[in-house]
Write a protein that binds this DNA or RNA. Sequence first.
DNA 1: ACCCAGGGTCATA
DNA 2: TATGACCATGGG
Length: 212
Amino acid sequence: MSHRSALLKIYHRLFECYGPQNWWPADSPFEVMVGAILTQNTSWSNAEKALNNLKKSDALNIHSILKLTEKELAKLIKPSGYFNIKSKRLKNYVTWFEKEGRFNCLNKLDDNILRERLLNVNGIGPETADDILLYAFERPVFVIDAYTRRLLKSMKMIDGAESYEKLRFFFESSLSADIGLFKEYHALIVRHAKEKCTHLKNCRHCIVETPM
DNA sequence: ACCCAGGGTCATA
DNA sequence: TATGACCATGGG
């Protein structure tokens, strides 16, 4: 079976199981970017608490994040963990976003150029960059995370030690560049992981009957 | 009391 | 390039 067929089969099985996830949960693209940083190595429920604190303080905007001191911001995002580092990363990212002319200018850049620019911002690694590219900038980039790697490995479709870029290329070269599909696929993989289904057989959350 | 969560940076070899 | 230390809260 081709990689394309296998990946589509997995997607359809996940969708059949869980339905549309409608990611990313946010009121605006800006909130997506902030949330992507806050949820780094942190449960979404904790990141959400931090986001709610920012909203309550009317601080979920460029001006407030730049105006708040590092300590004030850290206090607001405390529930997300790593609050000192994330405070720096947030201010750092928003400073860059403002300097680059926000969405108006950044939207004009090609996908790969924009990705390189994002990766050059301290605190933005490959996964956070791709979250932002896919869910805030609506670019056809496939997000890889630990769950994605685990899933493909359990399917015996990869060895497991492949680089982030290699896995991203695996998805992007096998599937057509469909933003809606990429958004839903990554969300479904995370949803599936939350069901704590680690095996493949005899389970109602089973993705396929047999490994591919 | 432990383990993990929608990662990334930096120093070291 | 490839490991290891570090960052820190909240829920199970």
